[in-house]
C-alpha cells in the first residue's frame, strides 16, 4: 500500500512538473503596447463620446466606412473591432456581409435574416495608415487622429 502511494505521488509529481512547465512557459509579464483590441479601444474612445454628444444619446444606429474591403478578413475584423469599441451604437449594414468560413457546398445556409437598409446621418470613418479617403456624399466633421474620423452625410 505504501509502495503504491509512493508510486502515485512520484508519478503525479512528474505530471505536475510537466503541467507547471507548460503553464510557466507561456508567462510573460513584460510591458507591451497592448493587443490590437486594446489599441483599437484607445483609438475610438474620443469618437464614442463625440457621437453621444452629436446624437444626444449613448446608443443608436450609425454608419461605418473603411478603406478595407468589408468582404475580406482584414476589413471584416476591423469592422468587428470598431463595432466592439463603439457598442452600444450599432453599425448599419455593410455589403456584402462577411461570413468567411461557410462551406461553399452549403452556401445556401447563409443567414436569411432580412438586413434593413439604413442611411444613418453620422458615420464613423476607420482608415488605415495609407490615408483618409472620404467617400462621395460624406463630409468630414472631425478628425480624431490615427485614421479615425467622424463623417456626416451631405444633405441632398
Amino acid at each position: 500500500m505504501r509502495l503504491q502511494s509512493l508510486r502515485v505521488s512520484s508519478c503525479f509529481a512528474v505530471l505536475a512538473a510537466i503541467g507547471t512547465w507548460q503553464n510557466l512557459h507561456s508567462v510573460d509579464f513584460s510591458a507591451s503596447d497592448g493587443d490590437a483590441v486594446s489599441q483599437n479601444e484607445r483609438r475610438f474612445t474620443a469618437i464614442r463620446s463625440a457621437l453621444s454628444d452629436r446624437l444626444g444619446s449613448h446608443h443608436g444606429q450609425i454608419g461605418y466606412v473603411s478603406d478595407l474591403d468589408p468582404a475580406g478578413a482584414p476589413g471584416a475584423t476591423a469592422r468587428f473591432r470598431a463595432q466592439y469599441s463603439l457598442a452600444p451604437f450599432v453599425f448599419a449594414p455593410a455589403q456584402p456581409y462577411a461570413l468567411l468560413a461557410l462551406d461553399p457546398q452549403f452556401s445556401k445556409y447563409r443567414h436569411p435574416g432580412a438586413i434593413p437598409s439604413a442611411n444613418p446621418e453620422w458615420i464613423v470613418g476607420d482608415f488605415s495608415a495609407a490615408g483618409i479617403a472620404i467617400p462621395e456624399g460624406l463630409v468630414m466633421v472631425r478628425d480624431f487622429g490615427k485614421g479615425v474620423v467622424l463623417l456626416r452625410r451631405r444633405p441632398k
Binding site: H58, H59, G60, Q61, A76, F80, Q83, Y84, A87, P88, V90, F91, A92, P93, Y97, A98, L99, H111, G113, A114, I115, P116
Partner: peptide
C-alpha cells in the same frame, strides 16, 4: 460575450439582439 455585456449594461440592451449584428 463582452460585446453583449456592453449592451446589457445600458438602457439600450435590446439592441444587442438585432440582425445587424448576426456575426455576434
Amino acid at each position: 460575450w463582452n460585446f453583449h455585456a456592453r449592451f446589457l449594461a445600458t438602457p439600450a440592451w435590446r439592441d444587442a439582439f438585432t440582425t445587424l449584428l448576426l456575426y455576434s
